[in-house]
Write a protein that binds this DNA or RNA. Sequence first.
DNA 1: GACACCAATTTGGGATACCAAGTTGGTATC
DNA 2: GATACCAACTTGGTATCCCAAATTGGTGTC
Lengths: 238, 238
Amino acid sequence: MNLNPVAVNATVINGTAMSQMQSVERQLREMILGLEIGPGERLTERWIESRFAASRTPVRAALLRLETEGLICRDGRGWTVSPINLTELEQIAVYREAVEVAAIRITCALEDKSAVDLIEAMLDSCDAATAREEWHRVGMDFHIELARLSGNDFLVRAVRDAMTRLSRARWLEVRDEAALGRAWAEHHAVLAAVRAGDADEAARLLSTHMVGSRDRLVTSLRDDRRGLRARGFAVVAA
Amino acid sequence: MNLNPVAVNATVINGTAMSQMQSVERQLREMILGLEIGPGERLTERWIESRFAASRTPVRAALLRLETEGLICRDGRGWTVSPINLTELEQIAVYREAVEVAAIRITCALEDKSAVDLIEAMLDSCDAATAREEWHRVGMDFHIELARLSGNDFLVRAVRDAMTRLSRARWLEVRDEAALGRAWAEHHAVLAAVRAGDADEAARLLSTHMVGSRDRLVTSLRDDRRGLRARGFAVVAA
DNA sequence: GACACCAATTTGGGATACCAAGTTGGTATC
DNA sequence: GATACCAACTTGGTATCCCAAATTGGTGTC
């Protein structure tokens, strides 16, 4: 017996109706990325079902998608929120660098550089008063949008996927004001090189930025591993 | 009422029991990659259900997975086997090149080059008497296994994903004996450079090989587009 | 106290029933 | 014959039920 009319079941965001599956997927993803469910925590389909007032069919569809995003993984017969894996983070950073550098080289060769302005505006929308959460989001979007300028959907997808997988770790990273400022400056420098069409320089700047970013990330997490574990987060180094 | 015992439901391959979902996914993937179901064909969950004697739960799980692999895509409310998209193929080729070149540079920097022998042996297992299907498989595996030497799982996954998406197109490509021989020789040359630890040369050879390969692929499909359409295959250039 | 053993519960995999929206084919009307 | 209209069917989305396997918790034995 289904007593729920569509108007009740469907979640509406920005005027667009979402299916139950999309709704569950979205909410669950936000909970995982927002660390409301910690890395390493067990998930049961039944819990999700009751938590989001959906039946198991959309729940399972959402789980399958989140698994391909790497946010959850199978744990024997059940599901687990993916632990923070330092080795994996390093590998993703290498992958990301290859893809982003390829993208920026393509972009530098393009005639129309006007889209760079939009990214620059995005960067400039952050200032000292901006919430850390917003800095975090802009820091991710910068790389995704930069890749998008290449016009290659697969490069964009790869960058987005990598950033999603790195997202929780970047959020956990202990970053001071200086680090945020440095990243901001490096992003601007990269854009300047792109605007000038200097592919080698843009690639070099971007690469340097990413290597530094990766090293600080991994070091920060490695140093704070005990603290993270104390918060109930699974952090593995294997 | 479920009358089917596990022994009937479970498909066993190589002594390993597969779930219904895995079985449906695998069979459906093979049918799509083997062009038994042509690009652009509509799929209904009910047809798959009866075709593989499974219920809709595993069918839907399989469809969700194949969607993330890019082999099928949503078509309004239904499912369609992904058409051959020439623009997409070109983008994948660019993506692939970035990833494979990054992987081979890492591999060249490694001390232990013994794994190269295994790939060389794989290449050498093909000769004039080898079936075209086998050439096809080895041609894919060469690139995947070469990436695996880097030790970076994300680079491997990216290459495997790209090769899967290119697979049908490569199978449709009109390739003569000369083309197969050239590819074989180029593969060997790449391995030689890797063994010598010459990253720049290996990257150059691999890159050249892939660019040529991509150009021939796209040209072949573009030229034969009419013939492919006549066989009922959707080929789009958008 | 350690351990083997069994029943109750939990859980994911699968099967099926139901619904709403879309499609289709036929029919009545003009 | 063209068209408006409606009923039957199709189809994906969702809810619910069943099952087997794993987990859990308690109990009796040594």
